[in-house]
Design a protein around this nucleic acid. Structure first.
Lengths: 102, 102
DNA sequence: ATCATTGGTTTGTATCAAAAACTGGTTTTT
DNA sequence: AAAAACCAGTTTTTGATACAAACCAATGAT
């Protein structure tokens, strides 16, 4: 593997995806067409503030879409992965595998 | 995949390894028994300060060993991956793959 | 003599993950 | 009916840390 190849690989890692909590969120969203805040909260075992910021990042990047509604009187937020999100998640893994051991 | 499984996975990601530049360093060191500072510098295309700090992290974690010698009158530093480093690199990938798409 | 190169270290900055604190309610308890 | 506790998040703060710039001490090239 050449120098320029190695360089191109580690520079190609998308930082929005390359964060364990966000990787886990994307992984979940690729298989579960829609999940809500509380599901992610309990599944990931992170704090609410932490989860909210990760979600914001993913939304800002256009990787997930956020739906806010009222269920009775209680607000409810749910998330889906977008086409872009799915594509970028896939692409991230393709790039990353270039750094895996043989 | 269960909630506790997802939680355990994203919490198991070793942050020392999980950094693109350090991933690239470890990748190189798994195939090239010994490399020097300048090789890494040109291969990775990072600044010297940046490279030095990444190397320090890897050394502090016991993942690489650093050999300093004089070649004639010129100092020369080279690096090898340790047993621990190799094992942790492998383990990191096993954990990480739990977050890859199906 | 001086300019570039090697092989770094030190210092400064800007980003960002994570937690804590806060908000605007609703439900429950007393 | 008031207070306490809970829900579903958002905003703010803090602590790390990735990264680059500047520096340094020595050697080698012109």
């Amino acid at each position: 593997m050449s120098k320029t190849q190695i360089n191109q690989i580690h520079n190609s890692i998308n930082r929005v995806v390359h964060e364990p909590v966000r990787l886990a969120i994307l992984k979940i969203l690729t298989s579960a067409k829609e999940v809500d805040f509380n599901f992610l909260l309990t599944t990931l075992g992170v704090t609410k503030g932490n989860l909210a910021t990760h979600i914001n990042k993913l939304e800002a990047a256009g990787f997930i879409e956020v739906k806010k509604e009222f269920r009775g009187k209680i607000p409810h937020t749910s998330y889906r992965i977008t086409k872009t999100g799915r594509r970028q998640f896939q692409k991230y893994w393709e790039n990353l595998m270039g750094l895996a051991p043989e």
